[in-house]
C-alpha cells in the first residue's frame, strides 16, 4: 500500500510538470512549429534542409533512410552497438556454459518427426514451412529497398531474425541452431557493426572525416559523391541487418532455453 501511495504522488508530480510545459507547445500538426520549420536566431531548420536538399545530396528518395544512415549515421551505428551490447549482456546473464544435465536424446530426422497423429506438429510445422521462405525473401526486399520505400536494416533484420525464430517454433531450437549456430550468430553480430564502421573508417584513410561516404566515389567509381553516399547507405543497412538478425535470434534462443541452448521448446 505504501508503495502505491508514494507511486501515485510521484506520478502526479510528474504529470503536473509535464502539463505545465504543454501550454506553450505549438499546435498539433502545425507545419510552422519550431521542430518543423526552425526558429529565429538559430541555424536554418535541419528538418527543412532534409526535405529540400537531401535528395540532391544523397540521391535517396526515402528521407528517413538518408537521415538515419547518412546525416545521423553516427547515432545509428551506436544504435546497432546498443543491440550488440544487449546481446552480450543477455549472454553473460543467462547463458549456462557448464550445464551438468545429460544431453537429450537426438530427435529423428525432420521427415519422421510428424508421426502418430501429433497434429500440433503438423499444423505449426507446415505453416512455418510455408511462411519461412516468404518471410526471408520479403526481409531481403525490405533491406535492399529501404532507399525507396519504408524499410531498412532494422526492419529487415528483425524479419530475418523472426524467420529463424519460426524455424525454432515450427520444429525445435536444435533445428534452428543447426542453421545458425551460437558461434556464428555472435560473430555475425560483431561483423555487422564492423561492416558499418568500415564504411566510416575508409573515408578516414582517404583523408576525410568518419562516415563521410561521399569520398567513396573513388572506390565505387560512381559519377559524383551523391551516388557513393547512396551505395554506402545500402552497405551500412546490410551491416545493421546482420547484427539485428543475429541478436534477435540470440535473445530468443537464450530466453526460450533458459540459457541452455539446446533441446526443444
Amino acid at each position: 500500500m505504501n508503495a502505491k501511495v508514494s507511486a501515485t504522488i510521484a506520478v502526479i508530480i510528474t504529470g503536473a510538470v509535464l502539463l505545465y510545459g504543454v501550454a506553450d507547445f505549438p499546435d498539433f500538426g502545425d507545419p510552422t512549429s519550431p521542430a518543423n520549420a526552425g526558429v529565429e536566431g538559430g541555424a536554418p531548420s535541419a528538418s527543412l534542409h532534409f526535405i529540400n536538399e537531401s535528395y540532391k545530396e544523397t540521391k535517396v528518395p526515402n528521407l528517413v533512410t538518408s537521415v538515419l544512415a547518412d546525416y545521423r549515421g553516427y547515432d545509428t551505428m551506436f544504435e546497432t552497438v546498443v543491440i550488440f551490447a544487449a546481446g552480450l549482456a543477455i549472454f553473460v546473464i543467462l547463458r549456462n556454459l557448464r550445464s551438468d544435465d545429460p544431453l537429450p536424446e537426438p530427435l529423428p530426422a525432420t521427415e519422421d518427426r510428424f508421426i502418430d497423429g501429433d497434429h500440433q506438429r503438423i499444423i505449426v510445422g507446415t505453416t512455418c514451412r510455408i511462411a519461412i521462405p516468404l518471410v526471408q525473401i520479403f526481409a531481403l526486399y525490405v533491406v535492399a529497398h529501404g532507399h525507396h520505400s519504408p524499410g531498412g536494416g532494422f526492419q529487415g533484420g528483425v524479419m530475418l531474425g523472426a524467420s529463424f525464430i519460426l524455424v525454432a517454433l515450427g520444429g525445435n531450437l536444435r533445428d534452428a541452431l543447426a542453421r545458425l549456430g551460437e558461434d556464428t550468430f555472435m560473430r555475425l553480430a560483431s561483423l555487422g557493426i564492423l561492416i558499418y564502421a568500415a564504411f566510416g573508417l575508409v573515408p578516414q584513410f582517404l583523408g576525410r572525416n568518419f562516415l563521410d561516404y561521399g569520398v567513396l566515389e573513388k572506390i565505387f567509381l560512381t559519377d559524383g559523391p551523391e551516388m557513393a553516399r547512396s551505395h554506402s547507405m545500402l552497405g551500412v543497412e546490410v551491416g545493421v541487418a546482420l547484427t539485428v538478425m543475429s541478436i534477435m535470434f540470440a535473445i530468443f534462443a537464450n530466453l526460450s532455453s533458459r540459457g541452455e541452448m539446446r533441446g526443444g521448446l
Binding site: G42, A46, G73, L211, Y213
Partner: peptide, 12 residues
C-alpha cells in the same frame, strides 16, 4: 561526422 558542416545541426 560525415562531413556535414553547413548548416549547423544537420549532422552530428
Amino acid at each position: 561526422l560525415g562531413g556535414w558542416e553547413e548548416p549547423l545541426g544537420i549532422g552530428i
